[in-house]
Design a binder for these strands. Structure first.
Lengths: 258, 258
DNA sequence: GCAAACTCTTGTCATAGGTCAAGAAAAACA
DNA sequence: TGTTTTTCTTGACCTATGACAAGAGTTTGC
């Protein structure tokens, strides 16, 4: 199922005229709501309420159903996205129809900043893995604020640097680790994210999406992913129950990496 | 041959005291020399001469012999590097001694910015592939200038975004293309860099470094690289003469990708 | 200009991981 | 609740790429 996002209707856009940046309190409850949502993103952490309100002029909320493609490779980029609820996958497709998922974006995360800062079209496609709600923040207000607040620039730089860091870690993983190691590493990271990062003991975790998608994220075929999972089951390292993985002893799983 | 860079002797550092930022002309010819070198880097393009001079306080020149390791994974990062002459390889090493080259940095290019912006240790190692000359620009003066000039921030953001872009392209290449395709793609890109990007016809190009290193950059073993090269020779697509590759018809090589 | 040290090739063999195809199991739906 | 659709497993087989080893070329250094 590959659906194309309907063209955004004009009413989805907040007006983009340049209001004077005075200290007057905005009374619009919709503006307040958007500001509150934005405030959650790390990027806007530490910004004054007034500053955040300023962004709302360039923000639109977007609800998409599972399967909807937000953008394709080659589409022009006018801003970036913040996921409020649901999951989005970023992937590229080769000429012969093969797909490689580069990232699974979850609630609270953002994507598309890098492309936005380059005036180039998207190089990947983005598709909703579940019904999702997102905010789209326009390039315009970002550049606006960047010119005004060097501290905001610093935050953006920090964000981009971190993203680069993760990507380099991915390259390392893809080139230096076996499929088995990648899967174990993935499970351990997953525990750190939604648990508190257990040092040892029993843990249960739920895969965020289908095994096929996760397999692709890890540069594996679905089949190979399945087989490795069953290898781990046979070794007594994990138990699988649908999308839930039980790890009887996470310390042992971690040790099995060496 | 793995040599460790000798600890930088104090005299290599320009004094780091905070001089008043007045418009007075600096008379020091060494400062002028460094400023002229810095001005070549895209990052400093468009900055006024006075601004660039300001950076020289945090710059040190470094000459390293082939084989010298500039830093290892885990070393703390105090700034970034600009290569004036020679080549540097960025790579990581797995526990079992395998090495993966992520980038071959050439004259005019910079590296290490991302880590610098994160207050984290290096995740890769850097080693001189040839005798090289570089400038090290300290974190300090960068942050200084960033606070002062939002336009400079924009440049940094643009640079990081582009680096991210390249890295994503690499991930795509590694996961979606075969060894043969990666090599052909590499040759074509190499032509675009040092030639004028020929649409068709005969081209000769010289590999920037040893085949083993390039193989690793392309996620291949030296042996496999060699075999693919000979496949291409057998297909009449290239001729190899040491480090020089002759491409009788680059259009045909490009077409052989599909 | 010779010896030592790299680098590159080539052969043989091993294997991680991919492909294709058919069921089984789950989810979604109606 | 049963039916359809999607996702997951499993089997048999294949292939791109890696590992090891030995030799042939090339540089480098004295």
């Amino acid at each position: 199922m590959i659906l194309r996002e309907p063209p955004p209707c004009a009413s989805m856009f907040a007006p983009e005229h340049h209001a004077p940046r005075s200290g007057e309190r905005p009374l619009d409850p919709e503006t307040e709501r958007l500001a509150a949502l934005l405030a959650q993103a790390p990027l806007f952490n530490g910004l004054a309420h007034d500053e955040i309100v300023h962004f709302t002029r360039g923000v639109r909320e977007q609800k998409v159903e599972k399967g909807v493609v937000l953008f394709h490779r080659g589409d022009p980029c006018h801003g970036f996205h913040l996921v409020l609820a649901g999951q989005i996958k970023l992937a590229f497709t080769s000429a012969d129809g093969h797909e490689k998922v580069i990232e699974i974006i979850r609630a609270g995360q953002t994507f598309g900043e890098a492309v936005m800062f380059m005036d180039k079209p998207y190089v990947v496609m983005a598709q909703a893995l579940t019904d999702s709600t997102l905010l789209h923040i326009s390039k315009h207000v970002m550049f606006d604020e960047m010119g005004r607040d060097p501290m905001f620039c610093r935050k953006i730089i920090a964000g981009l640097a971190q993203r680069l860091h993760h990507l380099i870690a991915d390259v390392e993983t893809y080139s230096l680790r076996s499929g088995r190691e990648r899967i174990i590493g993935y499970l351990l990271r997953e525990d750190e994210l939604d648990g508190e990062g257990h040092a040892s003991g029993a843990v249960s975790l739920r895969l965020p999406t289908s095994k096929g998608t996760i397999a692709s994220r890890l540069n594996l075929t679905q089949e190979h992913f399945s087989r490795i999972l069953h290898e781990l089951i046979d070794a007594g390292l994990i138990e699988v129950e649908g999308r839930t993985i039980h790890i009887p002893d996470i310390g042992r799983l971690r040790k099995s990496l060496n």
